[in-house]
Design a protein around this nucleic acid. Structure first.
Length: 435
DNA sequence: TGCCAGTCAATAAG
DNA sequence: CTTATTGACTGGCA
């Protein structure tokens, strides 16, 4: 009853474990690479674009790229003639696959009706995890309402400390205790989100908190307990300890089996799109100027960079979210009760010997201006970048005109003079494209 | 519908 | 092998 996993023979293994079983073959890590070769044959246009600027001369600065990009965008919009190169026919192929992978998502159709050029890598249908319902009786999920405040940074430091002290791999802790992926844990540990800004994400921190509240023996025991899903071991540990099988995330990707292909789930890994250097730098540069480009601009950007509109949209969405997570200083609301993070029994390795743990429920007060400062400096940098960008763009516009290379399968616009300094050699481009 | 929070999970990096 | 990064997916909400 406490075992919320309904994976039959899988027993207590969390879905993560289960999946790992068939995805982690001996050559698991080489899968993608081999597949790339395959793609080379299947998707010429895509592989082309991937190789195009792999060796982009590092001399091209972000700002230059941005200004170039922006200038071109502006220019085109002005002329109201995007004159986009005809989209590769390959997009048919990719969109077909895409549709297949999203088909069952009831009522959620990719907004961009247009068939944009496909992403460099198209994700084939991917096997999704099957999670059961959450375990409401899990003590780890209990308590902690709005009146409680948890210093997530402190909590994460503590967790990180514990993991190190006991040589507990993130993956193990993440999967057995939190039922989250290693990557997620890593991210949370490094960039703990402020408690008061958390929504459903609090559950994960809550579990971390409750775990760390357990006595050492219990903590380690719990970890071990989920190791093999051995019910016997389970019984050894008193339920009262407050641990139960990890609660699956409420919004994990749902399995969509029952669709086409015969269960060779193991073969459906998701090839991840990796932006080329130019794509990335251009996007970042543009982001610095406009965190929220209009739909039109996004479309234009997508065209210029040979990316899907959705990819560009995702980039900005992720960029916004991740750039926002920087100065996350929050403090308990006056009505909130601060839950102290118990300090580790032993003395931390090199932990701030002066930092008095708030083990008494004391909460530190942060200067509300700290955030302001950060923002100021950020905007300051952005300002200069933008200014420079504009200046450069303006200058270029007057001096010489831009020559957009998209027609050749190029990604970003490259000012003619780039070839002068010997920095940019069109030959490289030709080479790359011809592959 | 579009944006966002929470994540997954591929794969880079160490 | 372990941790960090990050493009994309899913569900919730306005």
């Amino acid at each position: 009853m406490n075992c919320s996993f309904s994976n039959g023979p899988a027993g207590l293994l969390s879905p993560l474990h289960i999946e790992r079983r068939h995805t982690s073959g001996s050559d698991y890590n080489r899968y993608i690479k081999e597949e790339d070769n395959l793609e080379t044959h299947l998707m010429m246009s895509s592989s082309q674009q991937q190789d195009i600027d792999r060796e982009t001369p590092p001399a091209v600065s972000n700002v230059e790229l941005a200004s170039t990009m922006i200038a071109s965008i502006i220019g085109e919009q002005r002329n109201s003639s995007p004159s986009p190169r005809a989209y590769q026919s390959g997009s048919k192929f990719s969109s077909a696959i895409k549709d297949e992978s999203e088909g069952l998502d009831g009522g959620h159709t990719n907004g961009d009706g247009s068939d944009n050029p496909s992403s460099a890598h198209v994700a084939p249908k991917r096997a999704k995890r099957v999670y059961s319902t959450t375990d409401a009786s899990d003590p780890l999920n209990a308590e902690i309402d709005n009146d409680i405040y948890i210093d997530t940074r402190e909590l994460c430091k503590r967790i990180a400390y514990e993991l190190k002290q006991h040589s507990i791999p993130q993956a193990i802790f993440a999967e057995r205790i939190l039922c989250r992926s290693q990557g997620t844990l890593s991210d949370l540990l490094r960039n703990p989100k402020p408690w008061n800004k958390l929504k459903s994400g609090r559950e994960t921190f809550r579990r971390m908190f409750n775990w760390v509240q357990q006595p050492l023996q219990m903590r380690l025991g719990i970890l071990d307990m989920y190791k093999s899903g051995d019910a016997t071991e389970m019984n050894v540990l008193p339920k009262v300890a407050g641990m139960s099988p990890p609660t699956p995330a409420q919004n994990v990707r749902q399995s969509r089996r029952s669709h086409s292909d015969g269960g060779d789930q193991s073969g459906n890994k998701r090839p991840r799109l990796v932006f080329t250097d130019i794509q990335k730098r251009t996007l970042q540069a543009i982001f610095r100027e406009t965190q929220r480009p209009s739909r039109e601009m996004q479309q234009t950007i997508a065209e210029h960079l040979r990316l899907d509109l959705s990819t560009v949209a995702n980039f900005f969405m992720n960029a916004r979210r991740r750039s926002r997570s920087g100065p996350n200083n929050d403090e308990p609301a006056p009505y909130q009760q601060v839950r102290p993070i118990t300090p580790p029994p032993e003395s931390p390795p090199r932990a701030n010997g002066s930092a008095p743990r708030q083990s008494g429920g004391s909460s530190r007060r942060l200067h509300p201006t700290s955030l302001q400062h950060v923002e100021e400096s950020v905007s300051s940098v952005a300002e200069s970048a933008i200014a420079y960008s504009r200046e450069l763009a303006a200058h270029e516009e007057n001096g010489e005109d831009y020559k957009m290379e998209e027609e050749e399968g190029e990604l970003a616009a490259i000012p003619d003079d780039q070839t002068v300094g010997g920095i940019y050699d069109p030959q490289d481009e030709v080479q790359a494209v011809s592959i």
